[in-house]
Design a protein around this nucleic acid. Structure first.
Lengths: 385, 385
DNA sequence: GCAAGATGGTTTACCCTCTAAAAAAACCAG
DNA sequence: CTGGTTTTTTTAGAGGGTAAACCATCTTGC
């Protein structure tokens, strides 16, 4: 059997995904976990070992014969992840564990043809830089702000790029010869977290990020929540301007939307109106030093995020909400207001509590998530979520 | 093979659920639909015909040999559905198509033992009344307001009943000898809709109802959204008191929750404060006649529902939202305010629109949903979602 | 009316996957 | 070393699936 042409059966994929979720397991453990017989596991594992997808790791000594723990080989496949979430674009080369082996930044181009050309060249550089790690390059993922078609090839709309119905997936696949998946930035982020991040395997959690705009995505029943038309997760236009906030008009035509208060763009605009620096770190410093306008702007922004988070928690009951924020905002009035407002608007039940975590905002997260799209296909096959 | 002891394989259930979803189909259509060979379908269908679960319905004439459409036999099984959503409790006897064959009302008792006894006796009466339709009684479903354990047997908390950790499922199952499932009222309602209602098979929709309290549930990716701790769908405490509304204190400790404005209880309270009749029909009549306070109360209640609906639509992107309302409210200021407010807070995209439907509020819906819990088990087997 | 063509359903032979049970392997304890 | 224990492999067989040929039953065109 040719190593690259992995024709994996459903049984193989069950094992692969179980180990990739739960970490290294022995054959017998897998049998119990998957409800298959030891005989089946044995045969399936043999195939996966032959194909260099799994490896026998260490012996675990107990009472009888020691069990050998089986792990997914990191070098079984590698992937390219591209984030077009911000300018510059970030390209990563990752392995099957999600580890990054090479990194590249490129200017984010608006013209689709030029963008494809630039990305394809970037991928070539990554392959060189990655060396051995790029051996079994198996796919490309692209994360971008905007809506993506159901087949995950075409960007339907992206205001950031000015794109409408740009089939960048097929274009890049043809240019590079590698299967390519396109995904909304927030969706890519949470899918990466679900496959490789600390919350890997959690069936119900949400992620939010505060950037130029505000993004959000949900894992529900263990799967990405897309909604009827792929628009699930949109939280930017949640009505949050409650009593005491001035409701600003939004580009969507309404007033009091979340993104008119809490996005970095909105915060910058408010700072400019108050004749304060628009840089978020400087603003956070001023707030920490007690500057009243800075405090007010960030408090308002954080509170609005808190209300939206509370709405989210009430409606979806996730186990965790991860909020990706510029690190200067974590331990600031923004972060505290977010936490307080969220806490106070959640109906508490005994023994049940959604954890809200802050995490640093970094463009790498989107690129890693994009890479995980291709990894997901490698692991789960055509029926990947 | 004993007809009652249906030991159905995954293949059998695939066929059963496909027909139950999509309506009557021929063998060849099923083969295409399920991706199985005609040979497999033929064998599986034979078993189901022998067990009197399917029947050959009509010949459909085309160019070649006519196809025989296969339908699920309504009398293949029957189910009891119990709604404890309101007082009185409603009990229904339904068949496998969701058709009601007998109906009974009972006082809703607070004492768990008495409630089980009363329900068990009620089920006996239903069986007599149902006659032939009760022949293959296969299970019981119970819908109640409150939280239900993960195994769907125990009511964890229900303020309406004053219950805490009442294992009514096991109790009724032991008393009647029939498998029993317990479910939150809103969840039962939407599961019934998903299996038997007009939106049957839709993978992404939500239902809301306005009763004494406000309930909500979501179908997402074709499955019920339960959340991490079974609390998904809670919308009663969504923060909706935006500028211009007075934010009333809520029993949950916050202010401005949806249920402080839009529930029938809240509407009644507001009416009493305004020295108006608390009956919802009378209030709607007064509003229709132009009484200012009645107009204001219902407008505010409807607007708040509209905002909550908009939050829901933005976050989940459902294809439909069904709002169950007292019929006097549909074409009233309440209904219009709901629609307007929802419309105005949704970010519109071209070609994409969530349909909002009103439907009559009736306790039968909850009982039918409860019955569908047992039907779901019959059709989908132990892995029923 | 009757062959030709088209389509639906069934039968047959076979393959693949999974299972149960026995056997083999690998370790610990005395 | 021997017996006990647990993991893994081997082996024989059952179950569920398929492809392909076959049969059944209609419409259509002459």
């Amino acid at each position: 059997m040719v190593p690259g042409s992995a024709t994996l059966s459903a049984g193989h994929r069950q094992i692969l995904s179980a180990i990739s979720r739960e970490g290294p397991r022995s054959r017998t453990e897998l049998a119990g976990l998957l409800g298959l017989s030891k005989a089946s596991i044995s045969g399936l594992v043999r195939d996966l070992l032959e194909q260099n997808i799994l490896c026998e790791q260490e012996l675990i000594f107990g009472i009888g014969r020691p069990s050998v723990s089986l792990a997914v080989r990191a070098d079984a496949a590698s992937f390219i992840g591209i984030s077009l979430q911000q300018d510059p674009a970030v390209l990563l080369l990752t392995d099957l564990h999600g580890t990054v082996h090479a990194r590249l930044e490129l200017p984010r181009l608006s013209d689709p043809d030029e963008a494809v050309e630039s990305l394809a060249n970037g991928i070539q550089s990554l392959k060189k830089e990655g060396g051995d790690a790029a051996d079994r390059l198996s796919g490309i993922g692209i994360a971008l702000p905007g809506f993506v078609s159901r087949d995950r090839l075409t960007c339907i709309t992206s205001t950031a790029h000015g794109w409408k119905n740009v089939n960048i997936g097929t274009a890049l696949a043809e240019r590079t010869g590698l299967p390519t998946w396109v995904e909304n930035d927030a969706n890519a982020l949470i899918l990466g977290e679900e496959l490789f991040g600390p919350l890997r395997g959690s069936p119900d959690f949400s992620m939010l990020f505060v950037s130029h705009g505000i993004g959000c995505a949900h894992i529900v029943n263990g799967r990405l929540l897309r909604g009827n038309s792929g628009g699930a997760g949109e939280i930017s236009h949640a009505p949050v301007a409650i009593d005491g906030f001035g409701a600003l008009p939004c580009r969507c035509g309404n007033k009091g939307c979340l993104e008119t208060v809490s996005s970095l763009l909105a915060i910058g605009n408010a700072a400019r109106r108050a004749e304060l620096p628009t840089d978020i770190a400087e603003l956070a410093d001023l707030a920490a030093a007690g500057q009243p306008d800075a405090l007010s702007i960030l408090h308002q922004a954080g509170s609005a995020m808190g209300i939206a988070t509370a709405q989210l928690i009430q409606m979806l009951d996730p186990s965790h909400v991860v909020v990706m924020l510029d690190h200067t905002l974590h331990d600031s009035v923004f972060g505290h207001a977010l936490m307080n407002e969220a806490e106070s608007h959640i109906l508490h039940r005994t023994g049940v509590k959604t954890m809200i975590h802050f995490r640093d905002f970094a463009p790498e997260g989107f690129a890693a998530g994009a890479a995980s799209l291709a990894a997901r296909y490698f692991i789960f096959g055509p029926e990947a979520g």
